[in-house]
Design a protein around this nucleic acid. Structure first.
Lengths: 231, 231
DNA sequence: CGTCAATGTGACGTATTGATGACAATAAAT
DNA sequence: ATTTATTGTCATCAATACGTCACATTGACG
């Protein structure tokens, strides 16, 4: 969820406040005190999101937003505008110009973070995932259901991800390290042997329909998910 | 093709004229003389279409349209705006704000009916007015009624929208974030946990007819509405 | 057959996550 | 002006998922 956020705001006090908040929330703020400077910064590196003050000296926020949205290269970067309270017309103009959301000043840190999160979430690709089926075992990510021979199987979150990982990469041996990277995430610190335990839990859950045999141990290497007979 | 049509118009003369026309054409007109009243009416029952005068005392037609289109629950209701002749700028603003068509005053009954028919035809499949039924639980958006095994169930506005959201997307798991985006709307900022509380309230209301079991918790992912057995 | 390393398995303390009731703020109704 | 509904948040409780360990079992190899 950490993101590079370009803050375009001419008032130093508000700017610092916002920057501090963003850092607190784990983001990487980049500041510009004018629209011109912001455009220059964006030529070097595109931010994940722009926080834009609507009232700026020189080029106005409206004009800046228009340019960002007019350029094919920068067009997809979401913009949240900061407007004075009650300036209803600004909000309308802003949203029409292409801003993705707005915050009225003064705003709380909580509101700021909530809106940033919401905008980033909305624009994140919907990783839907298609149902997978193999030897009578079916897993559907969108409904979060697993069935063996049409009988529902209950799995905990980790076992579910583990099974999904195996079913989408069958017939291949995965080391414990690889499984940890893919299923747990490549930045967690967990013992290799923990994988064994979750394999055990998954096998036990699959026993009811006899699908536990699909998870094969490859001694010295790791595990393999396969519909073919063992070894 | 009979439809419930909300007429938002402050001038009594025009209002009566339009209402008569609509009745003649077999529609069911509901009137509001201000944007505020219109919003209140829409909380009770969604119309199939809104006929909106652009010049209103109090909240303007633009602002009203913007609100309707900003709320996930009402956003798909089509809007036809009524503008004074030659007010070209209004048309542009109106269409940008989300109006689906416009008619310039004065207009003939024939023109009015033709446009209504056209808009309804174009948007018919998406209109939210269709009742939904599942496992003896019935929800009718146009009358704002819910019944479990033919016994009326009382729901607050939020619980109603929540249930409607679930019933129109059964089986699929929805994260709290997705539910917030779809049921609460885009610019509201509320905690993820608030969803839990409303799920609780909805479940309690459905307990009387035993339909509370249709709302399933998918630990680590969100909630699912399903007539099939739990997990 | 015995040894050692790799894997299986049950148990346990802790951390997460969801359920629930209470509460205050706000809006609506009277 | 009061009362009533509705809503969002929080504190607390309960459920269960998680990671690690200790010990059992297995398999390869001399």
């Amino acid at each position: 969820m950490a993101a590079a956020i370009l803050v375009v705001e001419d008032e130093p006090a508000i700017r610092e406040l916002v920057v501090l908040n963003l850092q607190q929330a784990g983001h990487r703020p980049v500041v510009a005190d004018s629209a011109e400077q912001a455009l220059a910064l964006m030529r070097d590196a595109l931010p994940d999101l722009i926080l834009l003050d609507w009232m700026l000296p020189g080029m106005s926020g409206v004009e800046f937003a228009r340019r960002v949205k007019a350029d094919a290269y920068t067009k997809q970067v979401p913009i949240i505008m900061l407007t004075a309270r009650s300036d209803e017309q600004d909000k309308i103009t802003g949203l029409e110009t292409g801003a993705d959301d707005y915050i009225t000043k003064p705003f709380s840190p909580r509101e700021l973070n909530a809106r940033i999160k919401a905008v980033l979430r909305r624009l994140a690709p919907q990783v839907a995932g298609n149902p997978v089926e193999m030897a009578g075992l079916r897993l559907d990510p969108s409904t979060h259901r697993v069935a063996g021979n049409d009988r529902t199987i209950e799995l905990g979150p980790t076992e579910f991800r583990l099974l999904h990982f195996f079913m989408t990469r069958p017939e291949r041996v995965h080391s414990r390290a690889q499984v940890l990277d893919q299923v747990w995430g490549n930045h967690v610190f967990v013992e290799d042997r923990t994988v064994d335990v979750h394999i055990r839990r998954l096998r036990r859950a699959l026993e009811a329909s006899g699908h536990d045999v699909l998870i094969q141990t490859v001694r010295g290497s790791g595990y393999r998910f396969s519909a073919r007979a063992e070894d």
